[in-house]
């Protein structure tokens, strides 16, 4: 656990040592503020963060891979992965440390949006249960994006490819969600529905915390992390 926290805290600090970290935070806040001013902060509109959360699910799809694209590619490029491999740290603690640092960065990215909740409180009566559910959903969806980004970073040789690979996967899933019913009919679509993360996120947005949705995101995140561990372990053994 000590090695895992060492890797996590090093990576977390490194995220804020590069301008890219601040650019990600600024872009996220800017995007949220635009949606808030255009869609939420309008007279007669309900005091809810729903449209913000709907927007964030898409925005995070592009921002989370930017957090993780450096993680393992950079260690490989610098040669520091070799030093980690020679240390007592296990591959599992290394991958988990990388994931925790990116999750902590995601929390920092989300934090400034609480200012929008304060504005809602000042001018309306927001439902805090719904807002908390939305943030939980964002963290779970974000975890899924981050873990897929880590896997992309493990299997690709460059940061750019890692970024594109991670974004491409979920964009493809999103497009499939739109196109599949037209091609294959409603039956095939209903079979795919349980695997649709965007549909599951909608429940969180309206304040519904369904344990099956929570489990889904945790399982998918775990799968990506375990796959990353397996790939790194196989590299060590070959």
């Amino acid at each position: 656990m000590k090695t895992c926290s060492a890797i996590a805290s090093r990576d977390f600090r490194a995220f804020f040592l590069f301008p890219s970290g601040y650019v990600v935070i600024a872009l996220f806040l800017l995007g949220n503020s635009i949606v808030f001013m255009g869609d939420v902060f309008v007279q007669g509109q309900p005091a809810t963060m729903r449209s913000i959360f709907d927007f964030d699910v898409v925005l995070l799809l592009f921002l989370c891979p930017a957090i993780t694209m450096r993680s393992i590619c950079e260690e490989r490029r610098l040669g520091t992965l070799e030093l980690i491999s020679a240390s007592p740290a296990s591959v599992a603690s290394f991958v988990l440390g990388k994931f925790l640092s990116s999750l902590a960065a995601l929390v920092v990215i989300l934090l400034p949006t609480l200012f929008l909740v304060v504005l809602l409180e000042l001018y309306g009566q927001p439902d805090y249960g719904e807002i908390a559910s939305g943030y939980l959903g964002l963290l779970l969806v974000g975890s899924m994006y981050l873990s897929s980004g880590i896997l992309a970073s493990v299997i690709s040789g460059s940061q750019t490819i890692a970024y594109l690979l991670s974004v491409f996967f979920f964009v493809l899933l999103s497009l499939g969600r739109e196109a599949l019913p037209a091609w294959t009919g409603p039956d095939a679509w209903s079979m795919m529905k349980p695997f649709d993360p965007f549909l599951r996120m909608q429940d969180f947005t309206i304040g519904l915390i369904d344990s099956s949705n929570v489990l889904f995101f945790l399982l998918v995140t775990s799968w990506f992390l375990l796959a990353s561990i397996a790939v790194l372990e196989s590299e060590r053994r070959s």
Binding site: A6, A14, S87
Partner: peptide, 23 residues
């Protein structure tokens, strides 16, 4: 290793602290 791979953005003492936690 050859080329002494290090994290260029870290300070020397931070790096050594990180390595001591790793071990």
């Amino acid at each position: 290793p050859e080329g002494s791979p290090l994290y260029p953005e870290m300070r020397v003492v931070e790096y050594l602290r990180f390595r001591s936690r790793l071990y």
